[in-house]
Design a protein around this nucleic acid. Structure first.
Ligand SMILES: [Zn+2]
Ligand SMILES: [Zn+2]
Ligand SMILES: [Zn+2]
Ligand SMILES: [Zn+2]
Lengths: 132, 132
DNA sequence: ATCAATTGCGTTATGCTATAACGTGTGCGA
DNA sequence: TCGCACACGTTATAGCATAACGCAATTGAT
């Protein structure tokens, strides 16, 4: 997917996520954007929907939060499954891809005649810095 | 983990999940148990917490719902990562495990010195029956 | 030029998901 | 008997997400 010009609201949300060092919830984003005129959750969610569609933002299902894609110049949709390691101490997220994991999962799904549409791979734990 | 005797509330919740053909949200469970005296969400969440701890129920993060473990006689905690294929049409969930996927992910995490604690692997799409 | 369709935006209200905080009762070992 | 752990019940609140309305700007036929 080629990313169109972002609207004002989309840019504001994307910038916040790009600068953030950890995933942000929609309501946290809202709070950070009140000074720029944001008043309601929908303004955030609508921007997020588009950013997700364009593939420049990912949603972390296990923590109801959002992060900017760590590989902005590739197309995250194109290299198959995306996985995340999420540190529960510092919030840092490492986004990664593994072809072997992709193929194994895809093969299994194929064997079940299951038509995959969206995938979630999230590992929560502690990053190298935070592991005691 | 060896599963202790379930309390009344835990049994009620577990039975509902076992009989269900699709994952249930906590509030859906609550509604189904009103006749047995359930009145508040906490009654459900507290039972679910224990059932999750015992490993006899899984939480599906991507749809905020819960399912009974499909492998009640094994210990789901013991065979590494658990993955789910979730049909968005009929709600059917297929729970599966793949050692190869486990090892690849674990190796990657190890290479990053990331200490994994909880994992989520969920594929949403359409099952063989529902795929057009 | 005009009309219709699309898209983004703002606002209010609502619904769904999850937990905090308090108190009760029961069983069990010190 | 005392203290503790645990399950339970209830009320209130916090956190996450969407429905439904209307308005404005854009685009692209006709
Ligand atoms: Zn990405
Ligand atoms: Zn960390
Ligand atoms: Zn299981
Ligand atoms: Zn199906």
């Amino acid at each position: 997917m080629t990313t169109p010009m972002l609207t004002k609201n989309q840019s504001l949300v994307f910038d916040i996520l790009t600068k953030a060092e950890a995933p942000l919830s929609a309501y946290t984003i809202l709070d950070k954007l009140r000074d720029q005129g944001f008043r309601a959750p929908l303004q955030v969610y609508r921007a997020l929907d588009k950013l997700l569609e364009y593939g420049v933002v990912h949603r972390l299902e296990s923590i109801n939060s959002f992060v900017a894609c760590a590989h902005p110049h590739e197309d995250c949709h194109s290299h198959g499954l995306v996985a995340f390691a999420i540190c529960e101490s510092c919030g840092q997220v490492i986004e990664f891809h593994d072809d072997e994991v992709d193929h194994r999962l895809m093969d299994w799904l194929k064997s079940q005649k299951f038509k995959a549409e969206k995938s979630t791979i999230e590992i929560r734990g502690h990053c190298a810095n935070c592991a005691a």
